[in-house]
C-alpha cells in the first residue's frame, strides 16, 4: 500500500461495477482524506448507491478497486459503518433504540456471543452523544426520521467506526431535522470521523461538505463544492432528468 492510500479514508481507483444489472459505474477515481465530509450527488441510476455499496464489499468490482484506510473493504470492515437507506430497514420490527445501538458491537462478535454489560454501557454513552438517551427504551419504529438517523449514527459510533457511509440520510427529513443532522456531521468531523453520504439535496453542499462527487455512471465533477459546482456543471450532471421548456412552450424531458 502506498502512503497516500493509507492516509486517505477512501481511495477509489478506476472502479467499474454493476449492481442488479441496472446501475453501472465505469472508470471511477476518487479520494476522500480522513476527517472530511463528502457527498455523492447525481441522477437516479447514476450509481451513487452502487459506489457506496462497493465500499463495504456488497458490490464486487468488475475492474479497478477500492481501498479504505489503505486496506481492502473486507479487511477494513470494522472501521467502517454502512447506514442503509430507510426503506431497507424493517421499522415494524419490535426493537428498542438501545438494542439497535448495541448492534454496533454485534459486528465485532462471534455468532454465539451475546452483548455484555460493557457493550450496553458503551451503547448508552453513544446514545447520549447524539442526544438520544431519553429514547433508549423506545421502539425505534416510533421515532421520527431524524431521530432514527441519530440512533443509526450512535450504532456506528458504538462499532468504533472511523468512516460512516450513509445512503440518502436526508431523505424524508424536514428542514430542522436536516440541519440537526448536518450539525451532527460537523461534530463527527471534529472527532476525526470521515463521513460519506449520497444525497439529492444540493442546497447544503457548499456550506457543510468538504468534497462533492457528481456521478452519472462516470465522474462528471469532483472537488470542493464551492470550486466545482456551477449551474453549468449541474445542468450537465442532471441534464437527462431536468424538464426543459422548448421555444414552442412545451415541457419535455431530455433523452
Amino acid at each position: 500500500m502506498n502512503q497516500a492510500e493509507a492516509d486517505a479514508a477512501v481511495t477509489v481507483t478506476n472502479l467499474s461495477a454493476a449492481y442488479e444489472h441496472t446501475e453501472a459505474l465505469s472508470g471511477i477515481d476518487w479520494q476522500v482524506p480522513r476527517g472530511h465530509l463528502a457527498a455523492i450527488i447525481g441522477p437516479n441510476g447514476g450509481g451513487k448507491s452502487t459506489l457506496l455499496k462497493s465500499m463495504v464489499g456488497m458490490v464486487v468490482p468488475q475492474a479497478g478497486g477500492i481501498r479504505l484506510f489503505g486496506d481492502t473493504p473486507k479487511r477494513a470492515r470494522r472501521r467502517v459503518a454502512y447506514l442503509p437507506q430507510s426503506e431497507d430497514v424493517d421499522w415494524m420490527f419490535p426493537i428498542s433504540s438501545l438494542e439497535v445501538v448495541m448492534q454496533g458491537r454485534t459486528a465485532h462478535h462471534r455468532l454465539w456471543q451475546r452483548h455484555s454489560r460493557s457493550d450496553r454501557k458503551h451503547a448508552l454513552e453513544q446514545l447520549r452523544r447524539v442526544g438520544m438517551e431519553a429514547y433508549a427504551h423506545r421502539p425505534v419504529g416510533d421515532l421520527s426520521g431524524g431521530q432514527r438517523q441519530r440512533v443509526f449514527i450512535a450504532r456506528a459510533l458504538t462499532q468504533n467506526a472511523e468512516l460512516l457511509l450513509m445512503d440518502e440520510p436526508g431523505t424524508g427529513l424536514d428542514a430542522s431535522a436536516q440541519h440537526e443532522l448536518l450539525d451532527l456531521f460537523e461534530q463527527l468531523k471534529s472527532t476525526g470521523h470521515t463521513v460519506v453520504i449520497t444525497t439529492h439535496d444540493l442546497n447544503c453542499l457548499a456550506e457543510h461538505f468538504d468534497l462533492v462527487l457528481g456521478l452519472d455512471k462516470h465522474v462528471v465533477v469532483s472537488g470542493p463544492p464551492r470550486a466545482v459546482l456551477s449551474g453549468d456543471v449541474l445542468t450537465r450532471l442532471f441534464s437527462k432528468h431536468f424538464p426543459v421548456i422548448t421555444p414552442e412552450g412545451e415541457v419535455t424531458l431530455h433523452d
Binding site: P84, Q85, F93, Q103, L165
Partner: peptide, 23 residues
C-alpha cells in the same frame, strides 16, 4: 439463544447486517 443478537440484527436491518459482515 446462541445466535439471538445476530438473528435480530438480520431481521431488523439485513442490508446493514450484510455490510457489517454478518452471514
Amino acid at each position: 439463544a446462541v445466535t439471538w443478537d445476530h438473528f435480530v440484527f438480520v431481521s431488523f436491518d439485513p442490508v446493514g447486517a450484510e455490510a457489517a459482515g454478518l452471514p
